[in-house]
Design a protein around this nucleic acid. Structure first.
Lengths: 244, 244
DNA sequence: CGGACACTTGATACGACTCAAAGGGAGTGG
DNA sequence: CCACTCCCTTTGAGTCGTATCAAGTGTCCG
């Protein structure tokens, strides 16, 4: 779990994700200022922690490449997954209020993140108001996402949760230019279950049922969605636009 | 459901809640500037809507007095409660990202709120940086709260959810100077159940059991917590600090 | 006083969890 | 490169908790 810092300066202006994690109205001079804010890029190997529960909050992290989970510790030593994150998404927002990170962030594959020191961000907020607005939007979107998960956990049956989960992954991958209906799960059945409030056996059983019914094709961690419409039908009703 | 506007100018400087909903480092001149931002106060009767799902987002609302629930519509016409809010708390934050409110806000008793137009807020963010920080903290706290609800919905049994819910109400009331162990529920059993992912019958049964076991004293909506420690014991373990 | 609504309580059904065992891959060391 | 081990996964059988269905009580409000 060694921290591996790479001290290359990033260039947001040339980053392929800048339409995902930055506001659209930025001018060229803003970009150059932005490049000063984002201090370092950092690479993590699979299984490495980006931050731990209880560590003092200093920065937000935007994912350039890779895949992460966030989780919290429960009493009995096990942990509960609170989210999965892919490129262009932001982690660490829950640390702002208390000044310490309230969850762990772990790379589920070799990854690279941008560090956004939050002190500097506050300065930038004043000089680049669009950026301020943008971060408010990102925090707000996280709230909406979490509320959708709350609906899922409070209302849906196992079948519906899994369908919702797969469709959500599919949609986010598609938005990043990957195949929508053919992808590799980066997390274990147990991690999926933890996130969805189910036991791993239930996840496995439900995926098997989907497979048997021809909705999807499951081959270990390789998922192919065969009948996206039928999956959507399973979910539909529980809440219209699920932005997990 | 008539909207009732009262066009009195508020004075944040003299509001008894300013340590709850405003940053602590504000100078006198900041306060006067703030009073210009907060346009109007608004009174709502029990049952009245503050905003609806789908309405264009314009403002955040801070509760001065009263009690609210927020909820979203599900397919079958029923609604799912996403939160309960009391004085000093902020509603509408989930509207920032999409530009429309993603839930309803309903007064559960006669209430009064401050309207914080969000355009003006962005201007203020630049001139009063402490305020910007403060709102980031509030949004972040909402994220932490929602994640705690996610844990509750994903991990806990009915007993633990109810205990957690009662302790949370108790703590928030105490923080506002009300009795911690003797209060009136503003919401119905069905609304509690909706929020906790339970059916109203389960809520009723569980409260009855608590009553029978001497943990609490239930008299319709009047709750007296007799053994707060035992309630805490019920919850303890699931997650240490529940900031619902 | 009457009616609607909120709540309580009971009996039953179903879905997910628990316990258990066995299969399959991936990674390691010889 | 192969064999071994460990862990992830699948699948089955039985249990438990909560939902469902249903009836009845109490309360608030017109």
């Amino acid at each position: 779990m060694q921290k591996s810092f790479v001290l290359n300066k990033n260039q947001c202006s040339s980053c392929s994700l800048h339409d995902v994690c930055l506001p659209s109205g930025l001018q060229t001079e803003d970009f150059s200022r932005l490049d000063h804010v984002i201090k370092v890029s950092r690479r993590l190997k699979k299984g490495e922690y980006l931050f731990h529960v209880g560590e003092p909050f200093s920065s937000l992290y935007a994912i350039r490449t890779g895949f992460f989970k966030t989780s919290v510790n429960t009493h009995d030593g096990r942990d509960q997954v609170t989210g999965f994150f892919m490129s262009g998404e932001l982690m660490g927002m829950n640390g702002i209020s208390s000044g310490i990170y309230t969850n762990d962030a772990v790379a589920l594959e070799d990854s690279e993140v941008c560090e956004l020191p939050f002190d500097n961000l506050e300065q930038i907020n004043q000089s680049i108001p669009e950026l301020s607005t943008h971060f408010f939007r990102l925090l707000s979107r996280e709230i909406v996402r979490n509320q959708n998960v709350m609906l899922l956990l409070g209302n849906m049956r196992a079948e519906e949760r899994l369908a919702s989960f797969l469709l959500n992954l599919s949609q986010r991958l598609a938005a990043r230019g990957f195949a929508a209906n053919d992808f590799i799960l980066r997390m274990s059945r147990e991690e999926i279950g933890s996130y969805l409030g189910l036991k791993l056996e239930t996840v496995s059983r439900t995926l098997s049922r989907f497979n048997h019914d021809g909705l999807i094709d499951v081959e270990h961690k390789h998922i192919r969605i065969l009948k996206p419409d039928l999956l959507r039908e399973l979910v539909s009703g529980c809440s219209h636009k699920m932005i997990l």
